[in-house]
Design a protein around this nucleic acid. Sequence first.
DNA 1: TTATTAAACTTGTATTTACAAGTAAAAAAT
DNA 2: ATTTTTTACTTGTAAATACAAGTTTAATAA
Lengths: 242, 242
Amino acid sequence: MISVTVGAKAIPQYRRLYEVLRKHILDGVYKEGDLLPSENELCQLHGMTRPTVRQSLSTLANDGYIRKHQGKGSIVHNLPREIGILSVSGTTSAVGDRDLKTRIIVKPVLMPWPDDFMFTLSLLEKESGCIYMERVRLLEDVPIIYDISYIPNINLPRITARQFENKSLFRILRDSYHIEIKGGDQRLKAIPASARIRRSLNLKKDQPVLHLERKMETNKPGLFLYSSIFCNTEKYSIFGRF
Amino acid sequence: MISVTVGAKAIPQYRRLYEVLRKHILDGVYKEGDLLPSENELCQLHGMTRPTVRQSLSTLANDGYIRKHQGKGSIVHNLPREIGILSVSGTTSAVGDRDLKTRIIVKPVLMPWPDDFMFTLSLLEKESGCIYMERVRLLEDVPIIYDISYIPNINLPRITARQFENKSLFRILRDSYHIEIKGGDQRLKAIPASARIRRSLNLKKDQPVLHLERKMETNKPGLFLYSSIFCNTEKYSIFGRF
DNA sequence: TTATTAAACTTGTATTTACAAGTAAAAAAT
DNA sequence: ATTTTTTACTTGTAAATACAAGTTTAATAA
């Protein structure tokens, strides 16, 4: 039987409340240090039970938007996101691409995987080859991130023909192929900038770069996306929680 | 009424199961790719209900030990911890100090806070002054991490007189002062190594370092610990989840 | 044999209820 | 006025239950 799902999947209640509260925090409805409404109040306000509300709040806490204190309440903790440009943790999207512009350096091309790829690949991945692309991400027209993406060529018809300018790769994957990033692993290193990276990111002499190697998990089992990311951290830092 | 708590606090059931499963994964009882017992099996095995078991598993998943797949089960995901030396995420202790030796460079001294401190301080913190210390952490006798710690001098009698050799600072804080690290924020940068850092970490010329600035939250409200950490990432990476 | 269907699993979401433990504010006692 | 106690309110932990949704296996039909 072939089942074609057209409409959007039902969004869980706890996820909806998460999005609402997150938006309110980012919009400044709740400011740094403010107490969120208590769990019982949120239950009444949104017509759900406490475990559901708690699931929203624990996700918010995990992503660093709030801190929970027994006996007190949930306190807004918005500081990092105001300055940072790339998040190390967070369930939403890994990169806050709100103010980031994208410039394509190498258009998507189909090629075999590099011999010494940074992660071990499955046989299926290896046989399929990879879609390769290079992009620069700019903050206020200043290049900050050099992003090399590797996508296994599994069931992604016509992806190399698509336009990626100013549209997140992840958005295209979500909208056109129903692929969602669920999370992933990353390795971090400080390395000297290569000549090409130095040129691309307008780096000063001897300015090192932060190198991230990422393996991203998706909602499609067996499908992983890979990125090699070079960051100019001279002016901006990368934020994270632990 | 004065209440003196002598014994250890009762450890929640979900935390106990978390520790058991975590240990089994680290010990290789469950190996990479293995399926954990199903939630219902874990319920029977440990005599608890599914919400409790699920709390353990979701914490394990958050810390990167397992991946959960609807309809399938929980799959062990132990790779990063075999290679990495410093964890960016994880509820337990931030640093896996199992194989790391510690060498004191500057013994704990009481001093005023630096003028341009990396985080904003509260008035209480500023007035109290800080306990300052510098340590090098070695992996197989090779210096990897240079750690500068700043601790507010609030209610920590005789801390400057204590011995820190080969004993984690955090262990002393926990054992002697009942202070637990609950989590925190960090900023990451790639920077050129200063002469002192280069000497301390035996860095090659032009080898940059990964710089972490950490603000750690504790179980004592208002008490934060601060660290400025320099990592030699030439041979080892820092791992993280997102 | 092959493809389809059904059943038996798995985790995901959600409600209801109960009590423990920590915090803050109000009330009472000194 | 000050201290102590109580109360009310907060989040934390835990059980019992129900159904949804995804995956795998077994049974069935072609």
